[in-house]
Design a protein around this nucleic acid. Sequence first.
DNA 1: TTCGCTATACTCAAGTCTGACTATTTCGGT
DNA 2: ACCGAAATAGTCAGACTTGAGTATAGCGAA
Lengths: 168, 168
Amino acid sequence: MPDHGERQLLLLGLLRHQEMHGYQINEFIDEQMAFCVDLKRSTAYYLLERLRHEGYVTEETERTGNRPERRVYRITPAGETHFQALLRTNLATYTPPTYANDIGLIFHHHLPPAEVRTLLETRRQNILAHQEKLKSLATVLPADHLAIIRHHLIHVAAELDWIEEQLS
Amino acid sequence: MPDHGERQLLLLGLLRHQEMHGYQINEFIDEQMAFCVDLKRSTAYYLLERLRHEGYVTEETERTGNRPERRVYRITPAGETHFQALLRTNLATYTPPTYANDIGLIFHHHLPPAEVRTLLETRRQNILAHQEKLKSLATVLPADHLAIIRHHLIHVAAELDWIEEQLS
DNA sequence: TTCGCTATACTCAAGTCTGACTATTTCGGT
DNA sequence: ACCGAAATAGTCAGACTTGAGTATAGCGAA
């Protein structure tokens, strides 16, 4: 995945709130952000190293008790500036997503129509399952995320509209 | 970007229709598919090499006139089988996209509300511009793509609904 | 107390992706 | 006939991503 800056924005945004060590950042992302951002743990470490190289965060190794060393990251003034720039760009930009499942539809005529119908019916079930998962997320995650969950729910609804159009 | 198979599906699907050389494939993708799939030229060459390694296509160098050598790709029987498998999976699956601009909204309170509003207004203009581009694509691309363009248009409409909700 | 399981904290080799570059041919205009 | 621009056809170093692996600490049960 190329770098459009939203993952740096996320990391800087978290560090702006409070200093954190890598594991803590990853835990937070996995628990609260995974539904709207794709960022694996090892990638986060890589990006933090890059942010450090670019002077946007500082890294300090610390140790609590006998636990292994951990690196605590803190945002720098340059990082704050960069954060604001990324935020402004992100808010003003529209990056159309790519829908991985579009490709199949281009070639649907390579299969018998009845089978295509069955397969798309299965897809519809998967969309419904995803919709339920999003709805339950709304009751678990903090209120800041409600707008984003709504965003996803609106798109899932659109997806269901479209696939029902295809099935009819 | 990890490999979920849709790009292989696309390449095999094109080669299933007719043998092609690399440049020709890339031209076709750039002209007809770029709006719904993200696949750069060098990546296409890389994937074709991989498909060859896996026995799904064969590669034959040919030369027309004095032009530089070109590699002609042909799908193999194993490739046909693989194509069908990928197609079935693709049709039955729902892969929720990630919306890169969601991140900004999480941190919107780091900017004055009035500025956020202005920035989102700009985003709205960008969405509208994208919508127009999609509409004009519908008049240019072959009819096979209409369902996909409709898919995109439905999502763009959803996006506009959502952002207007945020602005109100 | 000791065995195994989970949590803590990363590291790295291998896979994947692409912007920038190379090199030749054809073609329209002057 | 010659020049510059566009088309043809890819290559590759370097950047990005991630699954699998490493290593230690705490903690509950037998």
